[in-house]
């Protein structure tokens, strides 16, 4: 199998309410999957601050990027890049995973994660 065969069929779109996140475990990694209306995004479900569950956060925005606000202490994490957007000087990030919708099914690309693990 090739490098981009890591796309995993995760769940039907209807199982993640619009503008909300849900947790799913893929390859032993807890992932926060977000339904952003027209598209999906996926990051590791663990706030770099104190490990809060990002999937339980409120979807927000900051400076043009879509973020999720951690429910524990309001850190904001970009759902696309995984970088912490607030506090601005945190210089931390979580892993992010490409996500797309195909025939009503949410797909997440675990290739990078798998390679990391294998390495």
């Amino acid at each position: 199998m090739g490098r981009d065969n890591g796309w995993v069929r995760v769940t039907e779109v209807a199982n993640v309410a619009p503008r909300e996140g849900r947790e799913v475990r893929l390859n032993g990694v807890a992932i926060a999957l977000f339904n952003l209306g027209g598209r999906f995004a996926a990051v590791e479900n663990r706030c770099p601050h104190r490990g809060g569950p990002l999937a339980d956060g409120i979807v927000s925005s900051l400076g043009g990027s879509v973020t999720v606000t951690c429910p524990l202490h309001n850190w904001r994490v970009c759902v696309d890049s995984g970088e912490v957007a607030k506090p601005a000087d945190a210089h931390a990030c979580v892993r992010s995973f490409p996500a797309r919708v195909e025939n009503g099914i949410v797909m997440v690309d675990m290739t990078a994660a798998a390679l990391e693990e294998a390495a």
């Binding site: 065969n5 995993v8 993640v16 799913v24 099914i105």
Partner: peptide, 13 residues
């Protein structure tokens, strides 16, 4: 939690 429809099948894992 959401149960994935399939496990990740990636070479080497």
């Amino acid at each position: 939690e959401i149960q994935p429809m399939e496990g990740a099948r990636i070479d080497g894992t």
